[in-house]
């Protein structure tokens, strides 16, 4: 049975794997990022990027907003040209669209609560068109519509943290569902890792804010490690060091050390690196779904790094600060 599944995956993903073998050689190198950092201004940065696959998107961008739009367009083409036309299972495509759908939901929900317009913050990278997030979200899927209108009858403004936790929980649940439906082990493992990272972060924050166990449980994302869930009752009573040791002892967070688990900011940086480790291992796989999915994730990560390098400089950050942020992201 295992051999049949491997043969099926080899055939199903073979064409996309072949394309990835060529395309991954065109990913931006460390040297390109160094040259981007050394560039004096946006014009010179555009000259550096002109030789790469991002060049055609960014050539006419002049402001930070235009750069953001150009990078979003490059991701949109990746999803359209690569994911959708590579004949990959629809659940795999959904896995990549879910975070964008929920980013839109997050923006729409915040805008709704604060009474401002959300249109400018919405992207078309998800599976749900941005227009669907307007009004009462009548054309949104049931779960998203319910979330969008959750605070409509609230007497006072909800805390942004509560709102974020609600959307995060729904997003990770949808992500785990898409991973399960894809029947791709790598995606299931990746979804579980992301859920564990989200839950570990929640435990660290809950301790800092002394949240009661019932509230932590309500925010806890299902589908992750039971060992982390077992820490809920005692999390708020532990010291930062005790909680860090307890989380590290569960051994579900890869190379995350006790020191990384004492501080949320450091945790976020290491969490990115833990996910990157998993992607790197997948890129080395000789066939199957892993190299294809790792390539898409690498392109997403590349956009994140480009945003830091180009928009960061445009926003007035000095060269060294941008370099530090980039290093933290790729470490």
């Amino acid at each position: 049975m295992a051999m049949t599944a491997r043969i099926r995956d080899d055939i199903c993903y073979g064409f996309a794997v072949g394309r990835v073998r060529v395309l991954e050689g065109r990913l931006l190198s460390r040297a390109t990022f160094e040259r981007l950092l050394d560039a004096e201004d946006l014009r010179e940065q555009k000259r550096v990027l002109a030789e790469t696959h991002v060049g055609r998107y960014i050539e006419s961008a002049e402001t930070a907003d235009e750069v953001e739009r150009a990078l979003a367009a490059s991701l949109s083409d990746l999803y359209e040209e690569f994911l959708e036309r590579a004949d990959l299972p629809s659940a795999v495509v959904t896995f990549f669209q879910v975070p964008h759908d929920y980013a839109n939901l997050r923006a729409a929900l915040k805008a709704r609560v604060l009474g401002v317009r959300a249109e400018a913050m919405l992207t078309s990278l998800g599976s749900v068109p941005p227009e669907a997030f307007g009004g009462d979200g009548g054309s949104l899927p049931e779960t998203m519509r319910e979330l969008l209108t959750t605070f409509d009858d609230a007497e006072e403004l909800p805390a942004i943290d509560d709102l974020e936790a609600l959307v995060d929980r729904a997003m990770f649940t949808a992500l785990a569902e898409a991973a399960r439906a894809s029947k791709v082990r790598f995606l299931r493992d990746l979804a579980t890792l992301r859920i564990n990272l989200a839950n570990a972060r929640l435990l660290i924050r809950a301790r800092t804010k002394s949240l009661p166990p019932a509230e932590i449980q309500a925010r806890f994302v299902p589908g992750g490690s039971k060992a982390l869930e077992a820490l809920i009752p005692a999390a708020s009573r532990m010291s930062a060091a005790e909680l860090a040791i307890a989380i590290a002892d569960t051994r579900v967070l890869g190379r995350m050390s006790e020191a990384d688990l004492t501080d949320v900011e450091r945790f976020d940086m290491t969490a990115d690196a833990v996910v990157a480790d998993r992607m790197l291992a997948a890129r080395r796989a000789p066939g199957g779904a892993e190299p294809v999915l790792a390539y898409v994730l690498a392109r997403e990560a590349e956009v994140l790094l480009l945003r830091t390098a180009v928009v960061g400089r445009l926003a007035g950050l000095d060269r060294e600060s941008v370099r530090t942020r980039l290093k933290e992201r790729v470490s």
Partner: peptide
Amino acid sequence: AIGITIASSVVSGIVTED
């Protein structure tokens, strides 16, 4: 037939790009 399909699908992907 299975072996050629597995190898050819990857080769086709590479040739599409290069």
